[in-house]
Amino acid sequence: MTSTFLPDKRSGPDTAPPAPAGGPAPGRARRRVLHWLTAVSFQVPALALFGLLVLLPMLFALYASFFRWGGFGMPSDSIGADNFTRLFDDPVFLGDLWRCLVLVVFSLALQLPFALAMAVLLNQRLRGRAFYRMLFFAPYILSEVITGILFSMIFAPDDGLADHVLGGVGLDGIGGEWFSDPSTVMATVFLVMMWKYFGFHMMLYLAGLQSIPAELTEAAIVDGAGPWQRFRNVTLPLLAPTLRISVFLSVIGSIQLFDLVWVITAGGPDHHSETMAITMFQYGFKRYQVGYASAISVVIFGISLVFALAYQRFVLRRDLEGATTTMRGGGQ
């Protein structure tokens, strides 16, 4: 944001050219101050809100994570990094990290390719195309809580839809315990996640696909490229920016997953579907160990931050290069 107001680094036609060697003329300096004032006065309200509602609580959570603190009054019992060492000794939290990785891998390996396939399919001329698009997007519009309740009913033992349907084809009894069997609960939760979110990624891809000029595909056809070659060498490269964004959103979503799992299993059975956010909630709001819960939240934040920065630095760099918001020449 601030880069717009750094004239010495800009060379765009709408701003002042670099100052001559003799120093800026007085009128130009005044204009620069005015620029700054305008910028600051526009930003102050937003920055104040952001600081008060986002930065301050985050900093406070970081502070609280070094205390044994029950959430009453101000934290006073400082215990250094004990919360963090305890955290990385806790089999439940280590399990959370593992399950997070599993979800990320599943999302990238199954959900996104599926969404892409559906997007390519629904980008064809097809009778009822708009209807299908809407249908597949619909789960994304449902709230997480409604989705959770819906699926806990579908997979309810004995009375659930899954049990009835599977019973109807002779697979009696395997439909009911998907959420209550430790060995299947994660796969089932992932199934629900996939059902809920693939439509969103599909929509992203559809938008990306529509922006690919038809001429390119036509040219490829003229050159004798088959369908797979056209997809591999024309569609996929041009869709890459969209893919990169959707991978990013998918990973961050998996790291912070809470509500869907909370409603369906509350992390159970026996912690087998617990996520980091659920562990944090358990300690913060059930056990009143707010210091420890803060440490968990700090770790979640740290993981998200490291991922986001690394992803932007190494993967999104090309996409961000042309963006007006980056500081040109300032990239380290």
Binding site: A156, P157, S180, T265, G268
Partner: peptide
């Protein structure tokens, strides 16, 4: 315990 008890809530239809 009833079938699927590890995933069962207290209230609710199931």
């Amino acid at each position: 315990f009833q079938k699927g008890f590890l995933g069962a809530a207290y209230s609710g239809p199931t």
